[in-house]
Amino acid sequence: MHGDAASKPPAVSAAAEGRAAMGWLHTAHFLSSAPQLEHLPPLGLPEIAFVGRSNAGKSTAINTLTQQKRLAFASKTPGRTQHINLFGVGKGQVDDAVLADLPGYGYAAVPREAKLRWQRVMGNYLVTRETLAGVVLMVDPRLGLTELDEILLDVIRPRVEQGLNFLVLLTKADKLTRSEGAKALSIARLQAGGGEVRLFSALKRQGVEEAARLLWQWTHPPHDQAEARNAQDAEPPTPPAAG
């Protein structure tokens, strides 16, 4: 009993892992932007896609998770930007994952043809992108999952059933009372089709580190996580070489 306990790696607290994950996300930087799937570079790194209706708080959530004010650009005219934007993430100036910011959908002022074109691009990305490791869906809990969100869920459901990570972030949670938040969580969990659901508030920083931990875990297999922790314990941080 004692020998088994001694051989196990020391447990890492959720708070410590959350801080490490936040530090990792803070390294995010712009890589590429493309209007069509075929224009995206084949980076070969695990990708996490951020999706959601216009005005659901997607850009704010990305900027909060990466602790950067304008990494994800929030247009004053929702729905105007129709590009997939890729951001690299990784410590030591070596990317080990990618965040993919997909344009918001469902904004009424966007011409119908543009909506249909973008729906095809986004659908193709979510169905065929081989390096996709997870999807984060931003939902305003005051509106709940809309018809367009349900359509997106239908698109990714086969991949989620095959093991694709999926998280619903109920944004702007600071605008809910405690009972309203609990009700929104219960409803969203029934609709999420096997995905995880979390309350999230950029203003109150509710759920931020918890979401960061999930993104880190999605993109780093357990043995990689253990190696990273062991390396942190064994060696003091060294500054990057000049030049």
Rank of each mutant, 00 (worst) to 15 (best):
A173I: 06
A173G: 10
A173H: 12
D174P: 07
D174Q: 11
K175W: 08
K175P: 01
K175V: 02
L176M: 04
L176G: 00
L176N: 00
L176I: 01
T177N: 04
S179E: 14
E180V: 12
E180D: 15
E180N: 13
E180L: 13
E180Y: 12
G181Q: 06
G181F: 06
G181Y: 09
G181I: 03
G181W: 01
G181M: 03
A182E: 14
A182V: 09
A182R: 13
A182M: 05
K183D: 13
K183A: 14
K183W: 06
A184R: 02
A184E: 09
A184Q: 02
L185P: 03
L185T: 03
L185C: 03
L185R: 05
S186F: 10
S186Q: 15
I187A: 08
I187L: 14
I187H: 12
A188M: 09
A188S: 13
A188F: 03
A188V: 10
R189E: 15
Q191V: 06
A192K: 06
A192P: 04
A192N: 08
G193Q: 12
G193Y: 06
G193E: 07
G193S: 05
G195H: 06
G195T: 11
G195M: 11
E196M: 12
E196D: 14
V197G: 07
V197L: 09
R198A: 12
L199Y: 02
L199W: 08
L199H: 05
L199V: 04
L199N: 07
F200Y: 11
F200G: 04
F200N: 03
A202W: 04
A202D: 07
A202S: 15
L203M: 11
L203N: 13
K204L: 09
K204H: 14
K204A: 15
K204Y: 07
